[in-house]
């Protein structure tokens, strides 16, 4: 197991270098550069040229990439060309916000999606099955920005139950330690901030969790249906076991592998790609950061955030692979 893990971690290096090179190439091939974005309508050709020289944009791509790698060895991602803030700090500031939202959103998706999937499978073709699968279809197809705006309109504007956006209400102070607000408010014993944080998390988490919830429910259902048709399930029933034990111990556990895979993949993609949710709910996270950086051609920030997202994605896959062996003893990595 340890040997397997270390092998996987070593493989990380070439993967990340490959990812960074591809991103570097792609963003430099697209027309438009930070100098254009910084000067906007005001750029004269001379000013643009001067700024490009200053930002090192006139060097060849390989020279620029070499400069990037040289810094990367010291874990230095450089500075944003737009704001001049170190990229490490930009990412460090934003990542906890994304992590908090993703965990909360995935939590909702899992605790609703899995039971719904199991129930739908055990009562196949029942009213509940059909209804929940229709809802799930909506969940997958609904544009997140639309859902988000509707949630804000209903729960904030019309009913006034929940705050529309941001992470904390103006006037609620919270000492930032980890920048994960729930953790910080617990650490400092700040109950007001804790409740306020929860209130702010609900709407974006629902919006963010809707698609994974639907996918998880559908995956759980189909995986359960397949397992429940196996011979050993029939045997278990024949032994006279009650159906709850059959479903959860014999059925669900064996149906879990594909579900875990989906949960892991969804988790990874939410961490990097929650651009729409973060935009609608003014959530200062990494998805919005990388999106803005791409639009502004802020090369160092794009590089840095993509690298971090890739790293997390690979790590989550590793964790998923390792959980397989815990759930299913037949899978072993030694």
């Amino acid at each position: 197991m340890l040997a397997y893990m270390s092998k996987r971690v070593v493989f990380l290096v070439p993967i990340l270098i490959g990812v960074s090179f591809l991103v570097f190439l792609m963003i430099h091939l697209v027309p438009g550069d930070p100098a254009v974005m910084m000067l906007g309508e005001r750029g004269t050709p001379e000013m643009l040229e001067q700024l490009r020289v200053d930002l090192g944009l006139n060097d060849s791509i390989l020279t620029q990439y070499y400069r990037f790698l040289k810094k990367l060895i010291h874990f230095d991602l450089g500075r944003s060309v737009i704001s001049n803030v170190p990229v490490n700090k930009e990412i460090g500031d934003r990542f906890p916000a994304t992590l908090e939202l993703t965990i909360f959103g995935m939590f909702l998706a899992v605790i609703i999606g899995i039971p719904a999937g199991i129930l739908a499978a055990t009562k196949q073709n029942s009213l509940f099955d059909n209804a929940s699968m229709v809802v799930a279809l909506f969940g997958v197809s609904m544009p997140v920005f639309w859902l988000g705006l509707m949630l804000i309109w209903l729960f904030s504007v019309k009913l006034g139950w929940l705050p529309p956006s941001a992470r904390l209400t103006v006037g609620v102070d919270l000492l930032s330690i980890t920048n994960i607000h729930i953790l910080d408010s617990l650490l400092t014993g700040n109950l007001r901030a804790l409740f306020d944080t929860f209130g702010h998390l609900i709407l974006p988490a629902v919006a963010l969790g809707s698609i994974p919830m639907a996918i998880i429910a559908r995956m759980t259902r189909s995986s359960m249906l397949e397992v429940m048709r196996q011979d050993y399930i029939r045997t278990a029933y024949a032994k006279g076991l009650n159906s709850r034990i059959v479903i959860y111990k014999h059925g669900f556990r064996n149906a879990l592998i594909p579900v875990i895979t989906v949960v892991g993949l969804q988790f990874g993609s939410l961490l990097g790609g929650a651009v729409l949710t973060e935009t609608i709910f003014s959530w200062p996270g990494i998805g919005k950061l990388s999106y803005d950086a791409i639009m502004a051609r802020d090369f160092p920030v794009v590089q840095g955030s993509v690298l971090v997202i890739a790293l997390i994605f690979v790590l989550i896959n590793l964790i998923v692979d390792l959980t397989y062996s815990i759930i299913d003893p037949r899978i072993s990595y030694s």
Binding site: G148, I152, S156, V157, P163, T169, T279, S282, P284, K288
Partner: peptide
């Protein structure tokens, strides 16, 4: 307090909600 609220629709609803 200057708040960044990127989406036009969401920003307008914040004004309606009074936040």
């Amino acid at each position: 307090v200057f708040r960044s609220i990127p989406d036009n629709g969401a920003r307008f609803m914040e004004l309606q909600a009074g936040t």
